[in-house]
């Protein structure tokens, strides 16, 4: 998605003079065009993510809109305190862009994965996490992020939307497929695995994708789907604690809804083995085959 992000940024940079892009020395083969278009508003601050985030807070204080780019783990965890204090507590309009959320950097190993990012950042005051669903979704999600005047995190990944599916206009929860047997809710490109699984499922499923965390409310069509199917599968390339499923369950309890809940999430490194993003998804049973099996086994 980083190329789509770069294209989006290049397309708006000329008319948004308050934008400034800071990078923690990453962006090879992606941000060159942005650097060329933004000229002196593109600054490589070096491998110094802590300084980048505090500086961004100060730049925002002076009326600019900084976008801080790195790969997701480096953008989030190393400078966590700078994000929490200088950006979030002060409610500064800083956009943090992390490429390769979840297991996105695959064989690069655990240091390069970000499977706890949404839990941490969505707990920070004023912070909203934006998660595109597929590559073609980046521009609309980025527009939504830019429209929010406050701390934001854009979690980029990789995903190709199958032909024949058209997304509705942007909202924090969108329905992307219809069916009868299950309700599926997910976040990020891993929902594409669930989508393919539901296409193999007799009777199909309603599939919803969440693009903002914390999400404010459950949508009416989602609640209607839950009441009808009586069960929900939550899919996220993120650890269980602090993720989408925990948020959903609290919402359901508060709303007096008690569907059957199944949850597939990132399990970390259960065998202490490493591989591609697909490998890690399989290890966590987030792949299409396992999701299909789970939905079949739990359908009465």
């Amino acid at each position: 998605m980083r190329k789509e992000f770069s294209c989006w940024l290049e397309s708006i940079a000329q008319t948004r003079n308050e934008l400034i892009v800071l990078t923690g020395d990453l962006g090879f083969m992606a941000l060159e065009g942005v650097a060329q278009r933004l000229e002196k508003r593109f600054v490589n601050v070096g491998v110094s993510e802590q300084n980048m985030m505090s500086m961004a807070a100060a730049l925002a204080h002076e009326g600019m809109t900084p976008l801080c780019y790195s790969i997701a783990p480096f953008a989030v965890f190393r400078p966590a305190e700078q994000i929490r204090l200088d950006i979030c507590l002060h409610n500064k309009n800083v956009k943090i862009v992390g490429n390769g959320g979840g297991y996105g950097y695959g064989i690069m190993g655990a240091t390069h994965h970000a499977i706890e990012d949404l839990a941490m950042l969505s707990s920070f005051q004023n912070m909203i996490c934006y998660i595109p669903f597929h590559n073609g979704d980046v521009a609309s999600v980025s527009d939504a992020m830019l429209a929010y005047n406050g701390p934001s995190y854009l979690r980029l990944g990789f995903g190709i939307l199958p032909e024949g599916i058209t997304l509705p206009p942007y909202s924090s929860i969108r329905k992307i497929a219809s069916g009868k047997i299950w309700t599926v809710l997910g976040v990020g490109p891993v929902v594409l695995n669930a989508l393919r699984a539901t296409q193999e499922l007799s009777g199909g499923a309603d599939v919803f994708v969440v693009s903002e965390l914390p999400c404010q409310e459950l949508s009416e069509d989602f609640i209607e789907s839950l009441r009808r199917t009586g069960k929900v599968l939550v899919v996220e390339e993120h650890v269980e604690r602090g993720g989408l499923a925990e948020w959903l369950c609290l919402k359901l309890l508060k709303a007096g809804l008690h569907p059957q809940v199944q949850h597939q999430c990132a399990k970390g490194y259960p065998d202490k083995l490493y591989g591609s993003q697909v490998f890690h998804q399989k290890q966590s049973r987030l792949d299409e085959k396992h999701l299909l099996t789970l939905m079949r086994q739990n359908h009465e």
Partner: peptide, 23 residues
Amino acid sequence: FGTGSLGHGLSLAVGLVFSQRYT
């Protein structure tokens, strides 16, 4: 800016000064 956790002030100061190149 509120401070209290050490090591934040200079980066904030640097950001304020650097902003002048744009504003």
